[in-house]
């Protein structure tokens, strides 16, 4: 990106990009597909357009949504000891904190592991499905995309999976542990989420949303 240097005249805001992390101004240029434009001052990636990124993000968000649904309701760990078997699902883990003073923690865990990721995937599908299948974005697409972005630090499915790993090792001495289908669904979810985040260039998405807006 070309930086803007000290200027005497009043600049017009059109055709400029301000780096979201350091506020440095750049001239907006067309970035070829597969290339990345970085901020000259802080190195933050401004634009990184990819070929058919919309469809890829849509497919990955839909996959993540299905995996998430499977992950919630199937058992993720089974414990065998002394002839007894206990199965627990993600739901049970959330409900572990549900008595007394711990109730707020249960609600928070439910939000972080289940609700936030689900809402995020639904918002992304809502934003990208109309644009990738047709051309114009849906009516409240900017609001939905803003919600998805704001929720992203609070979506903790991948951290939960590492927690499962640690818990498995703590338990192995006490009982036989079998890994249920939900565990694999969550592992798949982690991979899909990482891919989705690398494909998605926020500034390009916002520009596309603006350009294709129904006026």
């Amino acid at each position: 990106m070309n930086p803007i240097h000290a200027h005497k005249d009043k600049l017009s805001p059109n055709g400029l990009i301000a780096c979201p992390t350091c506020d440095a101004l750049h001239k907006e240029t067309d970035v070829p597909i597969g290339m990345a434009a970085k901020c000259v001052r802080c190195g933050h990636t401004l634009l990184r357009p990819r070929k058919s990124a919309m469809t890829q993000i849509l497919m990955l968000a839909a996959t993540a949504f299905v995996l998430m649904c499977a992950g919630i309701f199937f058992p993720f760990l089974e414990l065998q000891a002394g002839g007894r078997i206990t199965r627990s699902s993600v739901f049970d883990a959330v409900l572990a904190f549900s008595d007394g003073v711990m109730l707020p923690v249960a609600i928070l865990l439910g939000a972080l592991i289940i609700v936030v990721p689900l809402v995020r995937f639904m918002a992304l599908i809502y934003v990208f499905a109309p644009m990738s299948l047709g051309h114009y974005p849906a009516r409240y697409a900017p609001q939905a995309f803003r919600l998805a972005e704001r929720l992203s630090p609070w979506s903790m499915a991948e951290i939960f999976i590492v927690g499962v790993g640690v818990a498995l090792i703590k338990v192995t001495g006490l009982a036989t542990v079998l890994i249920g289908p939900a565990f694999w669904a969550f592992c798949g979810l982690v991979v899909v989420t990482v891919l989705k985040d690398t494909f998605m260039c926020k500034l390009t998405v916002w520009k596309t949303l603006e350009n294709r807006r129904l006026s």
Binding site: N14, P20, A37
Partner: peptide, 28 residues
């Protein structure tokens, strides 16, 4: 494009009397 050149001479949106959006980078 990639290297940092002379960072001191970079003009910020604020110094230019403009406001940059921290979410999408648009300048106003």
């Amino acid at each position: 494009m990639e290297n940092t050149g002379k960072p001191a001479s970079v003009l910020t949106a604020r110094a230019a009397g403009l406001v940059g959006c921290t979410r999408c980078g648009r300048v106003h």
